[in-house]
Design a protein around this nucleic acid. Structure first.
Length: 480
RNA sequence: GCACCGUUCGUCUAGGGGUUAGGACACCGCCCUUUCACGGCGGUAACACGGGUUCAAUUCCCGUACGGUGUACCA
């Protein structure tokens, strides 16, 4: 049987970085096995819907390179792929369970349920729905139940958990997991608004869509027994489950926005490359067992296996991500990078600059920056002729005879025809020797006048990119 | 509280009955370099604890501790 997996986000906000990783693992697993990756939107909570969230999540996933074979945006033979469009289905299957005695009607109000939990906590017992004392078809009896249903009383349908059973399943990441039936709550399957809960919708859809492997975050592990029980109640074969570890904050709690950016769009906006982000995030909780750190999407697909997914949560290391992004920055074609940074240059107010020239600038400084768009501020003195001088830096290197020396050097430069690194180096070195000064006494002042900044690429390389004319102008103006 | 899951350098991780416990990020030092980076070399730094099993345990088993997740008419 060929592999079919799904990523099933809820459209309640922007795509979380942890969700991206879950989606990625699903995608990698599917592609590794030549299978199908499905996108399904779980919008059964009508109160938490956020308009545009589905589109944003799909866009973030597309940006990251996670592509789906089936989904609301691409179609497929198992649709619809949005749960609210499958509404009737869940009621049908829920009623089937009532008919077979695996589920039942309950009429409790939320106040009554709250009171029940308060009582249970006071008594020191685990808060779980008490089938024997609450208002449901068992305590109310057939007639009263029927009467309430006839009168359109608010009601839900709950799973009748066999409390004497033992639920056992094999998790591809964690091995055998066993839970006592008495620990499992009589979960609501159909809410009073007629929509299914995650648990019902999830099981029905995974079955109907012929999902073979459910790869999801560890937070789902505790409710998996409910799902297993549902498969059993329906008489269906459950898929293979794989609960992947969580992405964590530095304090090891579930990764949240309290500790930094967590939305994929935030990373995108900050200038991370999608391939770098994907590379990094795939290695949080999974490892191919080699010393290699850099993997392209095809590499990841080739090497990914569930067996090598870790059990423990992974703290998200922003610093290492930055390093990874730098690796990609240095490996990419400057021409491509130039195209990416053009809008930022325009936004910064600089006149149009030829992409070829921008590419040269990027080649000049990319060892020193983490993000492409850093070039805009890092090398601002190349995009404009306004040089903002770092006074402290100038004071440190500007000696009494510096101005005179530089004036003489400038006139020497005037005669240079081959304005490149080698010539500049030779001419400057010869000049230093003639005047009996160290080259350092020349280099720093040159940097001050030409760039204004202490930090930057090599002076000769910078001069080469700047060009003779602009260098001469800056030197003459700067020494006037 | 209860249930489930987890625990190798600060972080991501490799390893697995006998290893000098390996790599990466970060940090420190040196080299390269007239800056800062990049790169190269080197360094600091880890098997949570206690019992077993075994000739031998970081590795297997059991406890404990600590941590996380879950415990909704949310997903």
């Amino acid at each position: 049987m060929s592999v079919r997996v799904r990523f099933a986000p809820s459209p309640t906000g922007f795509l979380h970085i942890g969700s991206l990783r879950t989606a990625l693992y699903n995608y990698l697993f599917a592609k590794h096995h030549g299978g199908v990756c499905v996108l399904r939107i779980e919008d059964t909570d009508r109160t938490r819907l956020v308009e545009g969230a589905m589109e944003e999540q799909i866009e973030s996933l597309r940006w990251a390179g996670v592509v789906f074979d089936e989904g609301p945006h691409v179609g497929g033979n198992y649709g619809p792929y949005v749960q609210s469009e499958r509404f009737d289905l869940y009621r049908t299957y829920g009623m089937q369970l009532v008919a077979s005695g695996h589920a039942y009607y309950a009429f409790d109000t939320s106040e009554e349920l709250d009171a029940m939990r308060v009582r249970q906590q006071a008594a020191g017992i685990a808060p779980r729905y008490d089938r024997t004392t609450m208002r449901n078809q068992y305590t109310l009896g057939e007639h009263e139940t029927e009467r309430l249903l006839q009168s359109n009383a608010d009601h839900v349908i709950r799973l009748k958990v066999p409390h004497t059973s033992e639920v056992r399943f094999h998790d591809a990441v964690r091995g055998e997991v066993t839970v006592q039936g008495r620990e499992v709550d009589d979960q609501i399957l159909l809410k009073s608004d007629g929509f299914p809960t995650y648990h019902l919708a999830n099981v029905v859809d995974d079955h109907l869509m012929e999902i073979t492997h459910v790869i999801r975050a560890e937070e789902w592990l505790p409710s998996t027994p409910k799902h297993i029980l549902l498969y059993e109640a329906f008489g269906w074969t459950p898929p293979t489950f794989a609960h992947v570890p969580l992405l964590l904050n530095p304090d090891r709690t579930k990764m949240s926005k309290r500790h930094g950016d967590v939305m994929v769009r935030d990373f995108r906006k900050k200038g991370y490359f999608p391939d770098a982000l994907v590379n990094f995030v795939s290695l949080c909780g999974w490892n191919p067992g080699t010393d290699r750190e850099v993997y392209s999407m095809p590499d990841l697909i080739e090497h990914f296996t569930l067996e090598r997914v870790n059990k423990a949560g992974a703290v998200f290391d922003y610093k290492k991500l930055d390093w990874m992004n730098g690796e990609y920055l240095r490996a990419k074609d400057p021409q491509d990078l130039a195209a990416m940074v053009l809008p930022a240059l325009q936004e910064a107010g600089y006149a149009y600059i030829e992409p070829d020239y921008v590419a040269r600038v990027i080649g000049l400084v990319r060892e020193r920056i983490h993000f492409v768009q850093d070039v805009v501020t890092f090398a601002d003195y190349i995009f404009t002729d306004v040089v903002n001088v770092d006074d402290e830096y100038r004071a440190k290197h500007w000696k009494p005879d510096t101005s005179e020396l530089l004036r003489a050097l400038t006139e020497r430069y005037a005669s240079i025809e081959q304005w490149d690194h080698t010539t500049l180096n030779d001419v400057t070195a010869a000049f230093a020797t003639e005047h009996n000064v160290k080259t350092g006494a020349l280099m720093h002042p040159l940097r001050v006048v030409l760039t204004g900044k202490q930090v930057g690429a090599g002076v000769y390389d910078t001069m080469e990119v700047l060009g003779k004319e602009r260098c001469m102008t800056r030197l003459r103006n700067g020494l006037a």
